[in-house]
């Protein structure tokens, strides 16, 4: 026992490995039950029951799906570029995991409390496009390639306005560290000023994660599944896990930037007895519900409409809002010191 305690306290690498494992395993369980929640919620919205047969209330359905995908054959098309073809899902999945090191789950509960946390997140999320584009190219298939091209331009377009929205938030907090962003004082008028950006950010992360109504890269009615059309079994499962892990990640980023992270909602002090991670999880689940809600209700955008929304609506709006927020902060002398 003493040995374990001394190893625990002396070797940071042991602690890091253990915390990383906890995060990854927790994330995978969250992904599994996000797919379950999605099917249940969409079922309820469409007057169906969703998964019901595997386990009580269908609770074991994600595990059954996982076993099914695991036991299938991985097919590599003969014309595919083998290495890149297999690398693409790995990159996508790995990127959706590495971003979690800077997310603060509670006060002090963060694997790497770095100064440039926001920039790190932005860098990792901007690399997500490579998994898709490599998959589309390496599949050597028309549909996959079209999906990859759509995805690349879509993700690059919406990243621009996302970056400007993040700048708006940073103006009011004065720090790139995610914990300090959560803890920065936010009077009501600043919250009100950031609210439109919260809505735009919510729409942008739908586009960034290729989710409905912006799921053109997959677009099953027109390009039969897009960039992942040639993938099967575990390679497909990695794309699937990566997509859902990215959804959770983007929700967590939204919560950290706009909804006060682990703090109780609306600054209610009497709710502070609930552990911060519970608030964090609840808020993240709320954003995830919006993802599912949007998928169940909205029809898919047409491609030119998607581009118009990104470049002609969101970009000018967010650019104006950066100037507006900065101007307000200077006028009322509220710039963070």
């Amino acid at each position: 026992m003493d040995l374990i305690v001394s190893i625990w306290s002396d070797y940071w690498i042991v602690r890091t490995v253990v915390f990383t494992l906890i995060t990854v395993v927790g994330l995978l369980i969250a992904v599994a039950y996000l797919t379950y929640a999605e099917r249940k919620v969409m079922g309820a919205m469409q007057r169906r029951q969703g998964p019901m047969t595997v386990g009580p209330f269908g609770l074991l359905q994600p595990i059954a799906d996982g076993v099914k995908l695991f036991s299938k054959e991985t097919i590599i098309p003969s014309q595919a570029h083998r290495v890149v073809f297999l690398l693409a899902p790995m990159i996508l999945f790995a990127l959706s995991l590495v971003a979690w090191v800077v997310i603060p789950f509670d006060k002090g509960w963060v694997l790497a409390n770095i100064n440039v946390g926001v920039l790190y997140l932005f860098a990792i999320s901007s690399m997500g496009v490579y998994g898709v584009i490599m998959a589309g190219w390496a599949s050597n298939s028309r549909y996959a390639f079209l999906g990859a091209l759509r995805s690349a331009s879509q993700m690059v377009s919406y990243e621009v306005s996302m970056g400007l929205i993040i700048v708006c938030v940073l103006l009011t907090t004065g720090s790139l560290n995610l914990q300090e962003i959560v803890l920065a004082p936010r009077p009501f008028w600043i919250q009100a000023m950031l609210f439109p950006m919260f809505v735009v950010f919510l729409i942008s992360i739908l586009a960034e994660t290729n989710r409905a109504p912006f799921d053109l890269p997959e677009g099953e009615s027109e390009i039969t599944g897009g960039f992942m059309v040639e993938y099967s079994a575990m390679a497909f499962a990695l794309f699937f896990l990566g997509e859902y892990a990215n959804m959770i990640l983007m929700s967590a980023i939204t919560v950290t930037l706009f909804l006060g992270g682990w703090l109780p909602p609306f600054g209610f002090e009497f709710l502070a007895f609930v552990p911060g991670i519970i608030w964090f999880a609840l808020k993240t689940a709320m954003i995830l519900f919006v993802f599912i809600w949007a998928r169940a209700t909205l029809p898919r955008f047409r491609y030119d409409q998607l581009m118009r929304l990104g470049w002609k609506v969101f970009l000018p709006l967010t650019l104006f809002w950066v100037v507006f927020v900065a101007g307000m902060l200077i006028t009322f002398d509220a710039l963070p010191k």
Binding site: V116, L119, Y120, F122, A123, V129, Y130, I133, S153
Partner: peptide
């Protein structure tokens, strides 16, 4: 220089190289 490191990834990897790859693939 963590700021420059991150900006390097955002600008070169996230934007420039994507368009580059785009063109080369096409």
């Amino acid at each position: 220089a963590e700021f420059i490191g991150m900006i390097m990834v955002i600008v070169y990897v996230g934007a420039v190289a994507v368009l580059f790859l785009f063109v080369v693939m096409m």
